[in-house]
């Protein structure tokens, strides 16, 4: 589960502090996406630095926080969120409501599926139904898992699969 984190740091106004603050991120496997060094903004005699980075998990992020504490890097503000990937699948054919319930249960059992929304339509005069499934997942690997899930399902049940171009 990839996290994207934005932090406001306060560094001592002595040489080498920025490198010392960034080093724990890379040594813990984080990926630095942006650094803004506010030389002219001082807070309690410290210089303000804003850093955006990615971490692979919450424990990794906490290891970085621990390391900053040891290095006397003050953390003034933290914004973090989980990075998600959109999913979109359209199913067309003879899809019963029971089948849709089964598909939904199957999706809910897949790890890293964060949200699912299902829209299901059908004409009273036809056996053809259409289902649009949208949502998000928190891992790129899950995109492939879902792709396989829907492919196998539509092959077995003989209805048409229309995947989003995201994959």
């Amino acid at each position: 589960m990839k996290m994207k984190i934005n932090v406001d740091l306060r560094l001592k106004d002595v040489p080498g502090q920025l490198v010392s603050a960034l080093d724990p991120i890379s040594s813990c496997g984080g990926n630095i996406r942006g650094v803004v060094h506010h030389h002219d903004v001082k807070d309690g005699g410290r210089i303000a630095v804003n850093v955006t980075f990615e971490a692979s998990s919450d424990p990794v992020f906490h290891r970085i926080l621990d390391e900053w504490e040891k290095r006397d890097v003050e953390v003034a503000k933290i914004n973090s969120f989980i990075e998600t990937y959109p999913i979109r699948y359209l199913l067309v054919g003879d899809i019963s409501s029971a089948e849709m319930e089964s598909v939904t249960r199957g999706l809910e059992s897949i790890e890293n599926v964060v949200s699912i929304d299902v829209r299901y339509t059908g004409a009273a005069t036809s056996s053809s139904h259409t289902a649009l499934i949208t949502g998000t997942v928190s891992s790129q690997d899950t995109l492939k898992t879902l792709d396989d899930f829907f492919y196998e399902r539509t092959q077995k049940k003989n209805y048409l699969l229309v995947r989003g171009l995201e994959l």
Binding site: L90, V92, R119, T121, A123, S128, L160
Partner: peptide, 25 residues
């Protein structure tokens, strides 16, 4: 390979609700 002969008006309309179109890619 799969084609487009089973694409319905409902499918096209639902795709449009998602600000998308269906294309054979």
């Amino acid at each position: 390979r799969s084609g487009i002969r089973n694409i319905t008006e409902d499918a096209i309309a639902l795709a449009a609700e998602e600000n998308s179109v269906i294309r054979l890619i």
